[in-house]
Amino acid sequence: MFVELLEVFYCREFAAEHPATSFPITLNFVDPGFCWSGLSREEGGWGMYLGRLALARTTEQGSRTLASAGMSGQETHGQFLASCRPRDVSLFARSEEGGKLQKMVYQEVNEKLEKIRVGVTKV
């Protein structure tokens, strides 16, 4: 869960630092929804299996969310996409405290990236 939140924070802060008007690339992030993953061994045991039977999108339907995100335009820059449409991120991520944490995550990830490869975040 929190790993996804770290991704959300990084993407949002990156887009805030590189707004669509001055940055020629669209960065968006996607929730594929609850899908069959197409693997022979699905994770989560029986409860998850029954849940999938009742609710899940097929792998092909899920893949549309990825494919369409990759083909979408400037209006999705910095946006969270669910069911192929922009959606608000969580209330916590949008809160004042979330905003502070977002900057912290972005800065710490970039510090780590610079240690791996000097200059890599200067885009």
Binding site: F2, E4, E7, V8, P24, I25, V30, D31, S90
Partner: peptide, 19 residues
């Protein structure tokens, strides 16, 4: 206008990073 898409997931809705 190239696109860079990160596959995340909606489970971030349940995270508050209590750490």
């Amino acid at each position: 206008r190239p696109t860079l898409t990160i596959i995340s997931s909606g489970v971030h809705f349940w995270a508050q990073l209590s750490e």
